[in-house]
């Protein structure tokens, strides 16, 4: 059974100020299998984050349905862990309390929360930083806390909204490698939104290339490249060329529409 099912999703945003409707997502259907690592790839404004927010339950589709693990999504919940573009950590809580925030909500005792958090802190390589506050962490470390926090939910599905976009190239590469290792170990389903072709090709088992205004899925590409992925190998570059061509065509069409 598929882990995530999007059926005929349409999203229309009401622009109240300009009194017109904007078709953001046009009839998207997509199913994500269990243990899959799906990358949603597209330029900014193509609706990829909106799709992700619908799976998370932060937004509702105008038409169509979203189900996760066979259950219809009707709001955010701890069965879907989300990692945001900004880490969004509670600045008044130390690292370990941020990681264990879910357990705090469930009313666990402090000592138990502390124990439970340690595994996930170790997993993302933050041992020794348990008592640091978010203001004392670098961008990459904050994102690690965000990832540990999502993993602690032990969710069926992890949703990631360009989590590495604000990191420098070196940190980004390290984090990508670690994310793949964690995903392989935890056997969970990941939906990862990105605008970087390279990132999608390094991470995904499948890439959904999206087109913008209205957002549609242009092509679904299965990647059977061996890991760790060789970003300079010929097969990697074949995929890259193919995707870049798709994006370029799309850009040309958009411009023609704009001129006409």
């Amino acid at each position: 059974m598929a882990s995530i099912e999007l059926r005929n999703i349409t999203k229309i945003f009401r622009d109240a100020k300009r009194k017109r409707d904007l078709l953001a997502i046009d009839d998207v259907s997509l199913s994500v299998e269990k243990n899959e690592f799906l990358c949603l790839l597209g330029s900014s404004g193509c609706g990829k984050s909106t799709l992700l927010n619908m799976i998370a339950g932060f937004e509702k589709p105008t038409e169509g349905s979203v189900t996760v693990g066979g259950k219809a999504v009707d709001g955010p919940g701890a069965d879907r862990g989300m990692v945001f573009q900004q880490a969004n950590l509670m600045p008044w809580l130390p690292v370990w309390e941020n990681v264990a925030f879910h357990l705090r909500l469930k009313g666990w005792r402090k000592a138990d929360r502390r124990d439970a958090a340690q595994d996930y802190i170790d997993m993302v390589g933050l041992r020794g930083f348990e008592n640091h506050f978010p203001a004392e962490l670098s961008g990459g470390m904050s994102q690690r806390v965000g990832i540990a926090r999502a993993l602690l939910l032990n969710p069926q599905v992890i949703l990631m909204d360009e989590p590495f976009a604000a990191l420098d190239a070196q940190t980004k590469m390290d984090m990508q490698e670690e994310l793949v290792a964690i995903w392989q170990k935890q056997r969970c389903t990941v939906v990862f939104v990105t605008h970087s072709v390279d990132e999608a090709l390094v991470l995904g088992t499948r890439v959904a290339v999206m087109t913008s205004r209205p957002g549609r899925i242009r092509e679904l590409i299965a990647l059977d490249l061996p890991r760790p992925r060789d970003t300079t190998g010929p097969r990697f570059n074949d995929h890259k060329r193919h995707i870049l061509n798709l994006i370029r065509e799309e850009g040309l069409q958009q411009r023609q529409v704009a001129v006409a």
Binding site: P76, A78, R80, M82, N88, L89, F101, R104, L105, K106
Partner: peptide, 22 residues
């Protein structure tokens, strides 16, 4: 910060918990 409220509701916070913990 609305994003902190989003993060907490992602972790299953009820409205009362949002008020108290965020």
């Amino acid at each position: 910060d609305r994003n902190l409220i989003r993060a907490a509701s992602m972790m299953g916070a009820t409205e009362q918990q949002l008020l108290r913990h965020v």
